Simulated assay, not measured.
Amino acid sequence: MTDIHRADAPPAQRPGAAHDLDELSTVQLVERLTDQVSGLVRTEVTHALTEVKDRGTRFGIGAGVSGAGVLLMLYGFGALVATAILGLATALDPWLAALIVAAVLIAVGSVVAAAGARRAKNALPPVPERTANSVRADVDTVKEGLR
């Protein structure tokens, strides 16, 4: 740690001391404010980037695992579709059985795709909410300090 932050430093060297601020010129106070605001902005940007990266990583892993599951389910549904066509083909012509099963699959698939698109649209944009709230709190604190 620097001498400014050490506990055994003289009180005049600690940055938060009231009489220390009385001894600083306006230029020094503005420089200190600029440094503190710059540090705060850098910290908030770093937190926002970290939050977005974490969300992106979690999303990527979840999408990969879900994709593997969907592929396996696709093969299973393919086998079920073939079974349904063969089952209907015992009572109807094979082409008619395949047409009926295809029409049902297209109708159900359309409904599911529309529901998925609606959910995906509601999930965007991936805003770093905690960081945005923290920045708002920082701005409110600065506004209160200026009054």
Rank of each mutant, 00 (worst) to 15 (best):
P126Y: 02
L105R: 08
F77Y: 14
M73Q: 14
M1W: 07
G116T: 09
A79Y: 07
P128T: 04
A12H: 02
R119S: 04
V139D: 01
E44A: 15
G60D: 13
Q36L: 13
A120N: 10
T131Q: 04
Q28R: 07
P10D: 13
H47P: 02
A113R: 14
T46Y: 04
E51P: 07
R147M: 03
K53A: 13
R6Y: 12
V104D: 02
L24H: 12
G67I: 02
V27W: 02
T90N: 04
G16P: 04
F59A: 11
I100P: 02
H5L: 15
R130E: 06
A82S: 06
P11F: 00
L105T: 10
V135Q: 01
S110W: 06
A17N: 07
P126V: 04
G64N: 06
V52W: 01
A48M: 07
R42F: 14
T90P: 00
A98T: 00
G78Q: 03
G116N: 12
V142T: 14
T46N: 06
A9F: 00
I4W: 02
V139K: 02
R147P: 00
A120Q: 09
V104C: 06
T141C: 06
D8S: 15
A18V: 09
I61E: 05
Q13S: 13
V30Y: 00
L33Y: 05
S38L: 13
L72Y: 03
K53G: 09
L105V: 14
A132M: 11
A123M: 06
G109N: 14
L96M: 11
A113F: 01
P10C: 08
L29M: 06
L105D: 10
D140W: 01
E44V: 15
V52K: 09
L71Y: 04
D138G: 10
A48F: 02
E51M: 01
L96N: 09
L49T: 00
T57L: 14
E129Y: 03
V142Y: 01
T57K: 12
S66M: 09
N122G: 10
T90R: 11
T26Q: 13
T46I: 04
A113I: 11
A137H: 07
V70R: 05
S38E: 13
T50G: 07
S134W: 04
N122P: 05
V108F: 00
L33D: 04
A102G: 00
S25I: 03
G16N: 11
E144L: 10
V101A: 02
Y75R: 07
G16H: 09
I100W: 01
L80S: 09
I85P: 01
D3Q: 15
L21V: 12
Q28T: 08
P125H: 00
Q13L: 12
L86Q: 12
V104S: 06
L99S: 08
G76E: 05
A117S: 08
D35R: 12
R32Q: 11
E23W: 00
Q13H: 11
V112T: 10
I106W: 03
T131F: 00
H5M: 15
L146R: 11
V135I: 15
D138P: 05
L21F: 08
A9T: 15
A115E: 08
V104Y: 02
R32H: 09
N122A: 15
A102D: 00
